[in-house]
Design a protein around this nucleic acid. Structure first.
Lengths: 196, 196
DNA sequence: GTCTATAAGATGATAGAC
DNA sequence: GTCTATCATCTTATAGAC
């Protein structure tokens, strides 16, 4: 996995994509959320778009670039959420806002939200690619609130993952978004001992 | 993914494997936990074992059979846990025991435990292959306790996934097993309102 | 149980025409 | 921006010798 970017130093939300590139990313994300990165070939992406592989390679030089671009786009959405939270000033308020908005994101984008969290290829990428590392550290910091011990880290780990997974869980497949949103917010608050 | 088994009607724990087959499954599970099913080739498995691909194909006719066998073996370990829980008789006691033992399993096998839960290939397999379907339904039933509403299902979904993910979470990478075990048990109890 | 050798197809990626 | 055609390499899988 080659790890270079042409857009270093930018906020993820400042990265611009052409309409053609966006179409590639949409098709790729859909397939990757179903089959994972390794289980998704360029042929599959091209077929999903109704074009040939060569047309896809016009927009992105390598498969890696597509995976990086998808991760950037997903993180960009979380970046907005994170900045809204950090703007709260007080760490505990910030954490509450962050969790609240993460629930919104997860429920609104049930299929795609968990992709960057659980795919082994993207996990590797996040560990190797500096901008992703920096972003995740920021996210963890906000998720930890004011605490620092093992318990706080367990809370943060369980919450961030439970939200991502719950929205896709077979047991909850038939639950509508509104109900899921309300229940998830209640549970996250309860886990942290925040009054409901 | 062809979905046939030669060992139908057996409990997972009654399936027997030769020593050579076990070596294949060990190598495959290790690689799959790092790279996912699609990201793991038979060449990688053979290299990990220090033999050639042909030697691997002696033990299992297809890659699918290896993936099925790994899933059977993982479920077999959860099956023991599930049976211990079901033997409790009272559904609420059963759920408490199940969660307790799931935490044990997850902590003892931090790398492998989440494999069957999150790999897209295995998720598909579980939906298509009847013995897996039946087992998962049994597991969910025990996880739900006596309740039936959305809230109970959210609890079950969040708990089962949060346990699996937490043990592998980067925020908890440096936490030792003993501490992790204690913290996880406390959290699962708290989420369900079980007195600690 | 292991090997070498090989087949048939898929994969990521490129060249060059329209 | 799309296509056809091509490439080297990797993939799953098999045949047959030791």
């Amino acid at each position: 996995m080659s790890v270079t970017s042409t857009q270093d130093g930018l906020k993820f939300s400042e990265i611009t994509r052409t309409a053609a590139q966006t179409r590639v990313l949409d098709a790729a994300l859909k397939l990757i959320s179903e089959h994972g990165v390794s289980g998704t070939s360029l042929q599959m992406i091209a077929d999903e778009m109704g074009v040939t592989k060569a047309a896809v390679y016009r927009q992105f030089k390598t498969k890696d670039e597509i995976v990086i671009a998808i991760t950037e786009r997903e993180m960009s959405k979380l970046e907005d959420v994170l900045e809204a939270a950090e703007a709260e000033g007080h760490p505990l308020r910030a954490r509450a806002v962050l969790l609240d908005r993460m629930v919104e994101q997860a429920v609104n984008r049930r299929d795609a939200f968990r992709v960057p969290m659980f795919d082994p290829v993207i996990i590797r990428l996040q560990a190797e690619y500096e901008p992703f590392q920096r972003f995740i550290e920021r996210l963890y910091a906000a998720l930890l609130g004011t605490e620092a011990g093992v318990e706080a880290r367990l809370h943060a780990a369980m919450l961030s993952s439970a939200i991502s997974v719950a929205v896709m869980h077979p047991l909850l497949a038939d639950v509508d978004g509104e109900t899921l949103r309300a229940q998830l917010k209640q549970m996250t608050s309860r886990m942290l001992g925040i009054p409901e």
